[in-house]
Simulated assay, not measured.
Amino acid sequence: MKIGELSRETGVNPRLLRYYEEQGLLVSRRVGRGHRRYADDAPMVVAHIRALLAAGLPTSVIREVLPCVEGPGPALEHCAGPALRERLDGIDDKIATLRTARTALAGLLATTERSP
């Protein structure tokens, strides 16, 4: 399938499809005059990429877990677990840091509201 066909079928801009390819998430082969051709399963791969992006994963992590994706779901095999756990732990750490900063900022704001 050509890039325009893949774009229409998935609703993803061709520029973004090329970016996915640059990031090692999507594979194409080059045919006459260097035109990209994608495999028949490319729409499902793009759907997996979009689902993983929607979960807040950066492309570097997606590249790591994409081989662990099964079916149209996507359903993830156990091999995705360590990368996902590491990412979730990082998010939890950021949330804790933000909560601490919020508490400190709220305390500072409270002191300004008590002043005449």
Rank of each mutant, 00 (worst) to 15 (best):
M1V: 07
M1E: 05
L6S: 01
L6F: 08
S7V: 12
S7C: 11
E9C: 00
E9V: 06
T10D: 06
V12W: 08
N13T: 07
R15Y: 13
R15L: 13
L17W: 08
Y20L: 11
Y20I: 07
E21K: 00
Q23T: 02
G24W: 12
G24M: 07
L26V: 07
S28K: 05
S28F: 11
R29A: 10
R33W: 10
G34K: 07
H35V: 08
R37I: 14
D40T: 11
D41Q: 13
A42T: 00
A42D: 01
P43L: 11
M44G: 09
V45Q: 04
V45G: 01
A47G: 13
H48P: 02
R50Y: 07
L52H: 00
L53G: 00
L53Y: 01
A54H: 05
A55E: 07
A55K: 01
G56Q: 07
L57M: 06
P58H: 05
T59I: 09
T59C: 14
I62D: 05
I62W: 08
E64Y: 00
E64Q: 11
V65P: 01
C68K: 03
V69P: 00
G71D: 05
P72T: 12
G73V: 13
G73W: 12
G73A: 15
G73M: 10
P74A: 04
A75V: 13
H78M: 09
G81H: 04
R87M: 12
L88E: 03
G90A: 11
D93M: 01
K94F: 01
I95Q: 01
L98P: 00
L98I: 10
L98E: 13
L98A: 14
L98W: 11
A101H: 04
A101F: 03
R102P: 04
T103R: 14
A104D: 13
A104K: 08
L105I: 06
L109P: 00
A110L: 02
T111V: 14
T111W: 06
S115C: 05
S115Q: 12
P116I: 06
P116L: 14
